[in-house]
Each structure stands twice: as structure tokens, then as C-alpha cells.
């Protein structure tokens, strides 16, 4: 690493500085998780080393947190998010493929329905949706949590945009070779759509990971409670227990962090390198 050019070094420095600026508020959460409750807001101003490093350390908040239903709920969140991503990717890629590759009458209508579906504010329809789901006896079940995440109009839209960018010749050549639509999908389009699938998976993961009002309504039982709902119980009518909330937030953000770091290499492994782009 001795022969890094000054311009490269500057680039790295700017990149790192950007990352740190975005991370600073999270770092403050992490640090607060290890502070005694009364120290959390003590060192906000003026800025000093103690603003970003605890002067007194404690693990009490994690003890409180894991004595509650949190461990179970973090599993629930993860299970729901992963199941949604897997199921949702299947459902949404199939739909996006039909909307971008297959030509059929009414395509624009179906596409419009998909667009409208993500314009609908999910929290604002939570009450009627709750009635529907309860009618299907899906309250307090994983299905009740997962189902609303599967048909994600936004993910369909994203994947469609990607499929539209793949050359028509790919499909035409394959069909000349006698492939059916499903084979074209499975053997030609799917293998090329790695990065787009990761982005779409991210959309669905975030949808579930951020979900709060819906899980609170449909699955409040301890057995199915998700992490965001679980830490909200430290915000009671008699005051906010900031310590356990910070500890919970730290756990909640560490999991996607690990997953994202793991998936980062795949973002750059794009179709550009395969030379198949239009």
C-alpha cells in the first residue's frame, strides 16, 4: 500500500468521511446503550471525548432488554424478513418479467395497478386490512406478518426497470432455440438479475424491518412480536427507558449491518462485467 496515489488517498478519505458522518448518530446510539441511564443525555454539549465515549460503562440495559421478550422478537423479525424476501422475490420477479418481457393486452393496466399499490399508504389502510386478515383468522401468525410484504409493487417496479434494460435479442434468440417463457425467465433472465434481485430484496427486507403499526395490530402476542414492537414497550405512559431502547436499537441495526456487509461484494458483480447489457 506504499504507492497509493495522492488522488486515490483523497478519494478514500472523502469516502470514509462520508461514511463516518452517516454513522455518527448510530454510534451515539451504540454508546448510549452502554451508559447508565442518567448519562445518556448528559454530554450533548459542549462536544468532547465523553460525548462519543462512555465515561461509565454498564451492561444493565442489555440485561433488561434480554430479560424482556426481545430475544424471541429479534428471531421473529429476522424470520419474517427473510421469509418475505425469499417469497417476495419469487412473486415479484415473476410479475416483473411478465410486465417487461411478455407483450400482452392490458399490460399497462396491470402495471398501473402495481404502481397504485405502493402509492397506498400502508399505515392508513391498516384498519381495513386488519379486518380482512382477521376474517381469514390470520391474527397472531407468521403468515399475517409475511403476507402483506410479498406482493411489493415497489420491488416489481424496480425489477421491471431492470428487465427493460436487458436486450430483446436475448429473449428472441432463446425462443428461436425452442425455449418456453418459463425457461427464458429461469435460464436467461434470472441468472442475469443478481444485483437487481439484491436491491429488490433490500426493499422487502426494509419494509419488514421498519414495520411497526401493522405488526403491532396483527401480531401483538409475545410468540409473534417483532423487534420494533418489542422495544417500544420501554416507552410507557410513565416515561421512556432510554437505555434499553438504545440497546435494542443497537441490536436491531447490527443485524442488517452484518447482512449488508456480507452482500456488498454482490452489488459490484453486475451485468456490465458479463457484457450482456444493451
Amino acid at each position: 500500500m506504499a504507492n497509493i496515489k495522492p488522488s486515490t488517498a483523497l478519494h478514500i478519505a472523502i469516502v470514509a468521511a462520508t461514511g463516518i458522518v452517516f454513522f455518527l448518530p448510530l454510534w451515539w446510539i451504540f454508546v448510549s446503550a452502554f451508559r447508565p441511564e442518567e448519562d445518556i443525555f448528559r454530554y450533548l454539549s459542549p462536544l468532547g471525548i465523553e460525548t462519543f465515549l462512555p465515561t461509565r460503562w454498564t451492561l444493565d440495559h442489555f440485561v433488561t432488554l434480554f430479560e424482556s421478550t426481545f430475544a424471541r422478537s429479534i428471531f421473529n423479525s429476522l424470520f419474517v424478513a427473510v421469509a418475505t424476501v425469499l417469497g417476495g422475490l419469487l412473486v415479484c420477479t415473476l410479475a416483473a418479467f411478465a410486465l417487461s418481457v411478455i407483450e400482452f393486452p392490458g399490460r399497462n393496466i396491470v402495471f398501473t395497478i402495481m404502481i397504485v399499490s405502493f402509492l397506498i399508504p400502508f399505515d392508513a389502510i391498516a384498519l381495513p386490512l386488519y379486518q380482512i386478515m382477521r376474517g381469514a383468522e390470520l391474527q397472531n401468525s407468521y403468515l399475517g406478518l409475511i403476507l402483506p410484504g410479498l406482493g411489493n409493487g415497489l420491488a416489481v417496479f424496480l425489477l421491471r426497470q431492470f428487465f427493460l434494460g436487458l436486450p430483446k435479442e436475448l429473449r428472441e434468440a432463446a425462443m428461436v432455440d425452442g425455449m418456453g417463457w418459463f425457461q427464458v425467465f429461469w435460464r436467461i433472465y434470472l441468472p442475469l438479475s443478481g444485483p437487481a434481485m439484491i436491491s429488490a430484496g433490500l426493499i422487502m427486507f426494509i419494509f419488514q424491518w421498519q414495520a411497526y403499526l401493522w405488526p403491532l395490530l396483527i401480531a401483538p402476542a409475545t410468540e409473534y412480536k417483532v423487534a420494533a414492537v418489542s422495544i417500544a414497550q420501554f416507552n410507557s405512559a410513565y416515561g421512556v427507558a432510554f437505555g434499553p431502547i438504545m440497546a435494542g436499537a443497537m441490536c436491531i441495526s447490527l443485524i442488517p449491518m452484518i447482512i449488508l456487509v456480507f452482500f456488498q461484494p454482490y452489488f459490484s458483480n453486475s451485468v456490465a462485467s458479463t457484457g450482456s447489457k444493451e
Binding site: 391498516a126 386488519y130 379486518q131 382477521r134 395490530l217 417500544a232 414497550q233
Partner: peptide
């Protein structure tokens, strides 16, 4: 016991009791 955050209590009651939930 199901803990519902104070801020969301109205929404939860509206949906669940209002919806005739027996749970």
C-alpha cells in the same frame, strides 16, 4: 400480557376492540 405503547394504544383499541377481536 401484551404491552402496547401508549402512543399506539388508540390505534390498537380502534382496530382490535372496534373490530370485534375476541383475543
Amino acid at each position: 400480557h401484551q404491552s402496547i405503547p401508549f402512543e399506539s394504544m388508540n390505534a390498537a383499541i380502534e382496530a382490535r376492540i372496534g373490530g370485534g377481536d375476541s383475543s
